[in-house]
């Protein structure tokens, strides 16, 4: 008999791998990415290509320079690149996508130890960096038209809402993405299809998106918007416009920068919803999804620490971990 392998239990592992999880996220982003190309044309495709290529190149180059084993095969750089592009205005210059990707990968992800060690969502941090550095380019929106042929400058629905005016865009426009906005965030149907896939594949759980979107829905229903022309209570409109769906399903759920415990995830998601609503309603920006998620990312270590599950059979006096 041949030599036998000896190892500690368990001797079987699930089929899930980091690669399969990341691949599922990329697949789930595809419908929305495709709708971005449909609405905003070839430039949108180029933005995504440049962003993904730069993200992968920066990870490879960083590891090469530091003589570390390459982690490109885990596919996480593709997600960061793709998400960053989907968070850019459709007319953003290509170099901007590249700059954002380098920042996201090198500064936010690799310097902190690579996949799983980044304390905030790299794509969102990249977007925040670009928004602070190039505010004009990052807030110039173009209208959607088949393959971007008749694109004109436009305002996003959230910017209209900020004035207290119900935008021209109908609910159907919001669902199909026939509005101005970042190139991956506009088509609600495509995002929901991707989200359904992630839930079905158990890559994400319902907790973060449900509590995040639910919080925004309830708060905007109660608070409403007070603009120049009266008060608007349009919660359904609020959750379908802007980056909320993209943020709630694809970015707030980023493993590395969201809590691991079920209770922590719920508190985190409610926090995201609260901040998003406050920024949207009372802040100077029309949209608050990215900053809300980034701020809540910073609370994650604390949340994980204080929301450990109850130990089975714990005696009443010593509930919870005292780390």
């Amino acid at each position: 008999m041949d030599r036998q392998i000896i190892s500690s239990t368990p001797h079987v592992r699930s089929k899930d791998t980091v690669q399969s999880v990341m691949r599922d996220v990329v697949i789930a982003l595809c419908p929305a990415a495709f709708m971005g190309i449909y609405h905003y044309g070839a430039h949108a495709l180029l933005l995504m290509a440049v962003s993904i290529a730069t993200a992968m190149f920066s990870e490879w180059a960083y590891e090469k320079a530091l003589q570390k084993p390459s982690t490109l095969s885990d596919c996480s750089a593709i997600i960061t690149g793709l998400l960053l592009a989907m968070n850019l205005p459709p007319a953003a210059p290509l170099w901007m996508a590249a700059v954002g990707s380098v920042f996201a990968i090198v500064m936010v992800k690799m310097l902190f130890g690579g996949l799983g060690q980044n304390f905030m969502n790299p794509a969102l941090a990249g977007r925040a960096f670009l928004l602070a550095s190039y505010p004009v380019e990052m807030t110039s929106w173009t209208s959607a038209s088949p393959f971007g042929l008749d694109a004109v400058s436009t305002a996003t629905p959230l910017a209209s809402l900020k004035q207290g005016v119900l935008p021209d865009a109908t609910m159907l426009d919001l669902l199909t993405g026939n509005i101005g906005g970042c190139l991956g965030e506009t088509c609600a149907i495509a995002l929901l299809i991707g989200a359904a896939y992630l839930l079905y594949k158990k890559v994400i759980t319902w907790r973060i998106p449900a509590f995040y979107i639910g919080t925004v829905f309830i708060l905007t229903a109660i608070l409403g918007r007070t603009g120049e022309s009266g008060t608007l209570h349009v919660p359904l409109y609020e959750i379908l416009s802007g980056g909320l769906l993209l943020g709630a399903f694809f970015m707030a759920t980023d493993y590395a920068s969201s809590p691991m415990t079920p209770l922590g995830q719920i508190i985190y998601a409610i926090g995201c919803g609260l901040l998003t609503t406050l920024i949207r309603l009372y802040g100077s920006y029309p949209e608050g999804v990215s900053y809300s998620i980034l701020i809540m990312n910073l609370c994650v270590p604390l949340l994980d620490r204080y929301t450990a599950p109850r130990i089975f059979g714990a005696r009443k006096k010593e509930k919870g971990a005292k780390a």
Partner: peptide, 17 residues
Amino acid sequence: NCIRCGKCIEACPMGLM
């Protein structure tokens, strides 16, 4: 690398991390 997905926490029958 641990990707912090939390699947181990969702799996642990004893409620450990």
